[in-house]
């Protein structure tokens, strides 16, 4: 398989300066500036193969958007090497830009006062998409996202969910090999989120487009991204499969038990007690021991209800961030 993104010890430092308040402060600033260096990326490395769907997660200010901007050529790195589709992104050659797309959940590119179709036609011109290819791709995308009727309505009259779908279409018309999605589901209701996910999954499967995806909704990541890269405070914390993540950081299951007549003493023997009330107790039990443990509990006590589930991804990730601090 092709490697589409190669990032090696990528560093990015923002240089800002302190300004004292007031007019005198501004004058002082002109003469002698006190610089503040903020390290947004502290030397991260990773490779991404063609067709991968990668979830890129981290808390606010972790350096997610900075990375995406460098990879798409919007920002210069301070140090390190980056190669995307064989190009150096910040040279912004037309051949490079023709093969990528960047969609942001918080910023919209469609022209507000006109129907989305006009913006699509504009992109057709900008990317010099041949008529046939344009028609085919548009038909395919509108079909898949079920937005055929929305193309001729001025964008300002559409809901956020509808607009986001059209934004995605605008980004995909030129069939980019690489798609950057910066929080595309932000602010969407549950139904729209679900539709967006289904679409992305299907599109990635059919077109083999490489997608890098950031989101605060871990449900998105869980459902879409076989591989996750976790970043915090400019450093890479984890890079690997989602299952591997769980195995590494949460090698246990959650066991929830409801007893008929009160919680027996010595329950901590079976695992770490996470929470309990009158009749119910929640335990973390090692993955290997879970079957044995359950059998034993069912044999020894009178149990009304038992459930065994994975540790929620959210908890795992929170744990990663906490252990780092």
């Amino acid at each position: 398989m092709n490697t589409v993104i190669k990032v090696e010890s990528l560093q990015r430092v923002y240089r800002s300066y302190k300004k004292e308040p007031g007019f005198v402060g501004s004058l002082k600033g002109l003469v002698k500036r006190q610089y503040l260096n903020v390290e947004a990326l502290k030397g991260i490395s990773f490779n991404i193969q063609e067709g991968e769907f990668v979830g890129y997660i981290g808390p606010n200010g972790a350096g997610k958007t900075t990375t995406l901007k460098i990879l798409s050529g919007l920002l210069y790195p301070t140090a390190g090497t980056v190669e995307v589709l064989g190009f150096t992104p910040w040279r912004r050659s037309n051949d490079f830009r023709r093969q990528i797309a960047f969609t942001m959940g918080q910023k919209e590119q469609l022209w507000w006062d006109l129907p989305a179709m006009e913006s699509f036609l504009l992109n057709k011109e900008i990317y010099s998409i041949p008529q046939r290819a344009f028609n085919d791709q548009l038909a395919y995308l509108t079909e898949l996202l079920a937005v055929k009727d929305l193309l001729d309505i001025p964008v300002r009259n559409l809901s956020l969910g509808e607009r986001m779908k059209l934004e995605l279409i605008a980004s995909l018309l030129h069939r980019p090999r690489l798609l950057f999605l910066d929080e595309p589901t932000i602010g969407l209701d549950v139904v729209s989120q679900k539709k967006m996910r289904d679409f992305l999954k299907e599109y990635n499967r059919r077109e083999k487009t490489t997608i890098i995806f950031t989101s605060h909704y871990l449900k998105d990541i869980e459902e879409l991204c076989p591989r996750v890269i976790i970043i915090n405070a400019g450093s890479l914390l984890f890079d690997g499969g989602l299952d591997e993540l769980t195995r590494k950081y949460s090698p246990h299951k959650v066991l929830k038990l409801t007893f008929t007549d009160g919680i027996p003493a010595g329950i901590e023997r079976y695992g770490e007690v996470i929470g309990q009330d009158e009749l119910t107790v929640t335990l973390h039990v090692n993955e290997e021991g879970v079957a044995h443990c359950a059998r034993e509990l069912l044999g020894n006590f009178s149990i009304e209800d038992i459930s065994i589930v994975e540790v929620p991804l959210e908890d795992t990730i929170r744990k990663i961030f906490l252990t780092q601090e």
Binding site: K69, G73, L74, D95, R97, Q109, I126
Partner: peptide, 10 residues
């Protein structure tokens, strides 16, 4: 929104 312009081949 300048970002949108900069990522386009134009």
């Amino acid at each position: 929104t300048l970002d949108f312009i900069l990522v386009k081949p134009i």
